[in-house]
């Protein structure tokens, strides 16, 4: 599903190398977790895949299926089936959440040559999905993320994911700023979307999110590289011993 080969990335305006040769493959139906200390390049990886400006790919490639991600605009990546749940979802005053979501869903459908959803059809679908995430009608009407609590913002990200039905979901520190109940709710939302045809890349500092969203593979990232990969037990090792042992073991 997602194939990253020897990806090197630096900041566009500075001579600062952030990713130094990432190799990563996430097959359809699998959940891969990326863990690592601050500054290891985890968020950069998610931004570069989604197409955020400010970065320069100096070497390597990234494909979603047959699609060369690095060659196309962010909206084209989304239409190709990539979704990034933001660590800090952006507030957009004056634009209703529902309007935003309908614009996004229909833009993607249009880009894929599918028929756009009518207002009625859209409403029916979103109501059902919002209910599962305990998002009420009021939250759908409010401007995008404005006045939302941390938990509401993350639930709103998952709602967008559920509506857009991507092939590949990247979750960037979705657990940050969540209390235990909110984390459970968000995780249930994610788990409901697990599917043999869908891949997940879950970026997190902490193992606790992985108690709820059980990964198939765990990668440890440091210094812009993946330094170790293993099963779910690797996350537990990090939880118990921290990153120091792993970093030492590989250096």
């Amino acid at each position: 599903m997602l194939t990253i080969k020897n990806l090197h990335v630096k900041l566009e305006d500075e001579d600062k190398q952030i990713l130094r040769g990432i190799d990563l493959t996430v097959p359809a139906g699998e959940v891969h977790a990326v863990m690592g200390p601050n500054g290891s390049g985890k968020s950069t990886l998610s931004y570069v895949l989604a197409g955020r400006g400010g970065y320069e790919v100096t070497e390597g490639e990234a494909h979603l299926g047959d699609v060369d991600l690095l060659d196309i605009e962010p909206e084209e990546r989304a239409a190709a089936g990539l979704f990034l749940a933001f660590q800090y979802p952006v507030e957009i005053p004056g634009v209703g959440n529902m309007t935003f979501l309908r614009t996004a869903v229909n833009a993607q459908r249009k880009a894929r040559g599918e028929e756009e959803l009518s207002a009625g059809e859209f409403l029916k679908v979103i109501r059902a999905k919002a209910k599962d995430l305990k998002i009420d009608a009021e939250m759908l009407k409010r401007p995008v993320n404005v006045g939302f609590s941390g938990g509401e913002k993350k639930r709103n990200e998952i709602l967008q994911m559920a509506m857009l039905e991507p092939k590949m979901c990247i979750l960037d520190e979705t657990d940050s700023g969540l209390d235990v109940d909110a984390m459970k709710l968000v995780s249930e939302g994610v788990n409901a979307l697990r599917d043999p045809n869908r891949g997940f890349l879950v970026i997190t500092h902490y193992q606790r999110l992985l108690d709820h969203i059980k990964p198939d593979v765990v990668h440890i990232m440091a210094g812009g590289r993946i330094i170790k990969s293993g099963g779910p037990e690797l996350a537990i090792e990090v939880e118990v011993n921290g990153y120091a042992d792993i970093l030492e073991g590989t250096s």
Binding site: A78, L84, I92, A104, A107, Q108
Partner: peptide
Amino acid sequence: FYLRSRGVPKRVATDLLVLSFMAE
């Protein structure tokens, strides 16, 4: 970027942000 990452084309995303700006 947030809007475009959801599949909204740049031109439409810009319009949405213009509407957001004018909302007040």
